[in-house]
Design a protein around this nucleic acid. Sequence first.
DNA 1: ATGAAAGCGCTAACAC
DNA 2: GTGTTAGCGCTTTCAT
Lengths: 329, 329
Amino acid sequence: MARGFVTAEEVAKRAGVSRSAVSRTFTPGASVSQAVRRKVLKAARELGYRVNRLAQGLNNDRSNLIGVVGANLSAPFHAKQLDLLSIGLLRRGLQCLLLNAADARKDIAPLIELLFEFRAQAIIVLSGEPPESIVDQCIANGVRLILINQKIDRTDTSMVLSDDSRGADLAALRLIEAGCKKVAVISSGSQTPAQVRRTTAFKKKMATAGVEVVAWSGGTTSYESGYQAGCEVLVDEAIDGAFCVTDLLALGFLDAARTEMHRRVPADLSVVGFDDIPQAGWKSYELTTVAQSFSALTEHVLEALEADEMETRLQVVPVTMVERKTARR
Amino acid sequence: MARGFVTAEEVAKRAGVSRSAVSRTFTPGASVSQAVRRKVLKAARELGYRVNRLAQGLNNDRSNLIGVVGANLSAPFHAKQLDLLSIGLLRRGLQCLLLNAADARKDIAPLIELLFEFRAQAIIVLSGEPPESIVDQCIANGVRLILINQKIDRTDTSMVLSDDSRGADLAALRLIEAGCKKVAVISSGSQTPAQVRRTTAFKKKMATAGVEVVAWSGGTTSYESGYQAGCEVLVDEAIDGAFCVTDLLALGFLDAARTEMHRRVPADLSVVGFDDIPQAGWKSYELTTVAQSFSALTEHVLEALEADEMETRLQVVPVTMVERKTARR
DNA sequence: ATGAAAGCGCTAACAC
DNA sequence: GTGTTAGCGCTTTCAT
């Protein structure tokens, strides 16, 4: 639909110079005289000329496009991540080609292949696990692959992830400190690698501490699932603590605990979450939670993007406990 | 960075056919014999060939790229909108080039110009108001411009927006029905057109009903601003109703009302919001609010995208009142 | 149905 | 410093 766009040739004609003079004028480190440059700029302005980046990318082999694939983009965690990421990319002069998978489990591979067709220079995966074959194709084609909060067993792709097991340990410690005797771990039915890591680390820590833990898992990673978890898990009156592997789950769980299951938090029940999404700080919740550093995560992703060596990069970002009001002191 | 990508020429060589045969094989309605097609497909598979859409777009003048510019993408409303939109685009075979403005007020024009350089076929503006000159350039270049919840006085661009004034009327009516005598309208300091429309329509309706209204406005469109509004506005004990022009504001306002200003909702105070973001339905809030139909909004945007005539399109999407528990019955 | 050739808008290597 | 020329990977007449 470029119909209507002015070409460099037209500008050249109008300015009375050659096609290349125009090109040079718009190429940062080129040699053009002030006189020519001025003429070109004038003509370009009058005609409303814009460099065609697609054509530009065609011969210097750099599309400037960074593919971002994700799913469930309206979930606070992903939304926040995408927000930061897209700003960061833009700031570095990179464009973000966003592909939103309706279903993270299955739709991710075709999306990455689509990104190949657009010659994305790198691909950032926000959620979903790319199959081996796709990873192979990435390295074969020289496309950098960066996985967020996803760990796969390869030395040829970048991964940046929060320290899930450390976070789970912190959560466990905190619940122990709150004096809990029987706790629940709540995760969603989607069982993403990150959730699995958190769950198992938590169980392990609790086991060594001799605290009984019951695991619940089901539904999607949503407020609703958390709510449902609360309703089901808390019929057991003995439960006095819960670790929800995601804040969204925690918020739903909290609401179920308070409104449906009549627990006082943190008097009867201590709850800790994971992520520290904006809503966790809202007055109605004030959730004690393990914070992922969105900005650090983003920073490392951008770094991995720019690193010139496609070296092995497994960046583990530290997490911190943010103390609010849902765990007993 | 296409370094490593296989070209059609290599496939042709391997398949023992001409370059054009390869092209035809990958062009939907072209005439190739089954024999050739098979050979090409085989060679392509073995080599890992992918059509280069950038080059493809170069000569048939269609990039397949749809520019999406927005800001504040982690806000629930925008996140939801973007989520739906990106899925819809993908489903229609269009790619989404996302540009996130750090500041909606000022950064939007350069982003649109950048989109020109990528030869975006259309540009969807999620937030922020594009200056006249930019709009002119869009039409000059044959780039369709679609504004969401933004109304500008032009006949050559598509706009799809929720029926803000009708929504404000509904809110007013509801507050009157709740028996409010003195109400507040809360908006953010950013004063987006949508917020202004809602505020003025609300005031007008209340005026004709003879209900006193005090307006508060400040900060960004956020939970925090809503909270602050609550703290400041509710020192006036006479206020027994509030219309927050955005759910995010409403949620903050509610929390301030309940925790800080000791109001019972809806007994002492009725609150109604606007948008119906997911959090409005959470148990801790159960906000009575005017719902925008995200899906209808998205649907119309996609339609506007595909309409072959770049006719005037001002699509006003109906809103509905969703009754929950923050307005007195 | 198929190959040769021209061209999409641009950049870069090469002369001058 | 500047114009000429040759591509970048693809599609599309135009012959055959």
